[in-house]
């Protein structure tokens, strides 16, 4: 468990949804984000932790913090990489 290190630009509440809900919601926020934004995803799905970390690694973005709250998890992702339209 870590302490929050950044003030989120966007909070995405995916609590109650199961895979692929949290990643789909995160991706939607990512598409509307700018470089430097911090997206904070709230999830109850236990798969969200490993899946978001994998997503970040794969997409070249950065997980800043994983915070366990009572009954859900907050995952902060800093957007450092966005592709350009091809």
């Amino acid at each position: 468990m870590q302490v929050p290190v950044a003030k989120p630009t966007t909070v995405v509440d995916s609590r109650g949804t199961m895979c692929p809900g949290p990643i789909t919601d995160l991706f939607r926020a990512f598409r509307n984000s700018s470089i430097g934004d911090v997206i904070e995803l709230w999830a109850t799905d236990p798969a969200a932790k490993p899946d978001v970390q994998t997503w970040a690694k794969r997409s070249g973005n950065e997980v800043l913090a994983i915070i366990d709250e009572n009954g859900y998890t907050k995952i902060q992702v800093r957007i450092v990489k966005k592709g350009t339209a091809r």
Binding site: F30, R31, K57, R58, S59, G60, K81, K82, G83, T84, A85, R86
Partner: peptide, 16 residues
Amino acid sequence: LARQTPELETSPHLDK
């Protein structure tokens, strides 16, 4: 085939 999510680049460095 050209249509793909433009916001995400592929990650060739991962070699996957």
